[in-house]
Design a protein around this nucleic acid. Structure first.
Lengths: 347, 347
DNA sequence: TCTATCGTCTTGAACGTTCAAATCGCCATG
DNA sequence: CATGGCGATTTGAACGTTCAAGACGATAGA
């Protein structure tokens, strides 16, 4: 059972003091090159790794990023957050951070978890997904000066805090444009009931594209809950009515799958074109055209913005009040453009 | 900015010493009831939370469970591990543990990550999924005496270490039995190429059920890669041949979806019955009968077995060699029974 | 030559917790 | 009445790291 290798072990091996080893690892520029080399050799030879707990004790930094893992949703779109989580873990590791998970049934429970986590593991930052109107979590964290980033806009006030999001409207706009380019004129939109930021945003992209083409959208906007069966029923009704659309842009792959099934049932040979959102495995499997979010990129931005916030905390006194010359004080926003993956459901 | 609340703050507030506070929290039985009450009040009033880093320094325990998050697979079945991960996070929280994530491209990279993690964050245990023949990770961890559990059997030697798994064979057996009960006689199996533990296991359940019913399986076992398109092609061929099956049990929902599409295309009015595995969102959405794994339960068992291993470590010297009266030394195995979710694809 | 400065390295202290040992009062036992 | 033991609590030390301050020799400026 090999004894634990501490900084003292390395120091003895290299014939220097503890602090010199620490300096080699944290502030190499203050130590002579030859010494640095010797210490590195010792670290290598002994397989030394800085103990995170001890480091945290002294510095107050845990190099941990906390985020919530959601219960699998009904729908098909759950996989989006999982891909994001994977991207986050990778990006974090690239910056020397690890991701620690928690669950919470609702916002209130989540805030209780914050208190727990902050007391015990003291993560350096939080990543919040699934933002919504009147989100209580962000203000709680902001009030405590905790660094955090949301993946998803704060739908109430865009400049409230740092966030990363994907431009859903641009996605549906591109999808609609793609259909218009194929000759479609009656392009419908199947979305969620009004009031959800994400849903309303996606609808607006469709409306914008239609308007730009000089087309009337009256009677072409449909609404239902985010479930396959409901979408299927809705589209069945839509196609049986007087002047049915020839293409449908959907707010999610769940809706799109339902629409796709209804379309094929109504006319197996030349079904109505259907376009989904999120490019989930199902869309790939079924051959559904869909809007794809750059999740890995979004996750990388989250980590980048967080590390910047954390670093900014160190020089706290300077940022508040003075000229924000370095811009570290102003919350940053990143809006990424999704891309359209064209498959056979729109050809 | 409220000062940090430490054990010393609580001690002063309650008029006792540090150690007494520590005792109230860790070994309440040694402290007088009245004192205990006073300390609890102080903890409550000040919102005290034990600092994990400091605790870890002293005890060597981090109360962290490390597990890997996989890159999203091609298929549809990725959601299985995500549900498991969610269950794991919840179960861990229930036992006072948190889940910390890492990624790794392959086994070798994963082992490198172990060294990193063990040096820095020193998790108390690991949970490994996606076990396979000749898994190098388990022996590495075992050699270092690291507590770990795999979700998935060690396919080489069942008694090698502690594991939790779902009885895939029982699942396909039940699915096959369900189809036989509906009057089907020519029930085919569509699985993965031989050599994967999971796949071979699932095939064996089907074979068992067929044998029990006295049916011949010659020419009824099909094989293809785990992709929707390939399954679709395979089943198209199958149904065009001389004596086609009337029902197909599949090793995954990906395969089942492909089979389902081919079946409906071949005969929209009375398609061949199809049964999948994993009860993924897609199966739910499309109406595919599927075998459902009790993932939350599996995760809970993992945590239970881990905490037991961790606790067993403390009395290390006693367990080795002596009579294993308490059984803590022998690796435990848990095999859970999946359940069949019947939907319209088999009626 | 004396002092100041710089580069390099070392020493003591502290972070918050728990372990091990010591203290103290009290009661039972010989 | 001395001794021992027990229950309840306190005190000192240690975990491994980094910060703050200091030491030491060499070089430069007055």
């Amino acid at each position: 059972m090999a004894k634990k290798v501490t900084i003292a072990t390395v120091a003895r091996y290299a014939g220097v003091s503890r602090q010199t080893v620490s300096n080699v690892l944290n502030t190499p520029e203050v130590v002579r090159e030859e010494t640095r080399r010797r210490v590195h050799e010792a670290v290598e030879a002994l397989g030394y790794r800085a103990n995170q707990a001890a480091r945290q004790m002294r510095t107050g930094r845990s190099r941990l990023i906390a985020t919530r893992i959601e219960p699998t949703r009904d729908g098909i779109n759950g996989s989006v957050l999982d891909r994001f989580l994977h991207g986050l873990t990778e990006a974090a590791a690239g910056s020397g951070y690890r991701v620690i998970l928690y669950t919470a049934a609702d916002d209130e429970a989540e805030i209780a978890t914050y208190e727990d986590l902050l007391g015990a593991y003291t993560p350096d930052a939080f990543v919040l997904a699934s933002t919504h109107h009147g989100d209580a979590r962000t203000s709680w964290l902001a009030a405590r000066g905790m660094p955090f980033v949301t993946f998803g806009r704060p739908w109430d006030a865009l400049d409230a805090h740092t966030w990363v999001d994907v431009d859903g409207a641009a996605g549906t706009e591109e999808a609609t444009g793609h259909l218009l380019g194929s000759g479609h004129r009656r392009v419908a939109f199947l979305g969620w009931p009004e009031g959800s930021g994400v849903g309303d945003d996606r609808r607006s992209g469709w409306a914008r594209a239609m308007a730009a083409a000089g087309l009337d959208v009256a009677g072409l906007a449909y609404v239902c809950e985010d479930r396959v069966a409901e979408a299927e029923a809705a589209v069945r009704g839509m196609l049986g009515a007087g002047e049915p659309p020839t293409a449908i842009v959907c707010a999610s792959d769940s809706l799109a799958l339902g629409a796709f099934q209804a379309a094929r049932a109504a006319n197996p040979d030349a079904p109505v074109a259907v376009c989904g959102f999120d490019d989930t495995p199902v869309a790939r499997a079924v051959g559904l055209t869909s809007v794809s979010q750059p999740l890995e990129e979004a996750a990388a931005h989250c980590v980048r913005l967080l590390t910047r916030q954390i670093a900014g905390e160190d020089v706290d006194g300077q940022n508040t009040g003075g000229q924000q010359e370095d811009g570290a004080a102003a919350p940053e926003r990143v809006l990424l453009r999704p891309s359209l993956v064209v498959r056979r459901s729109t050809t």
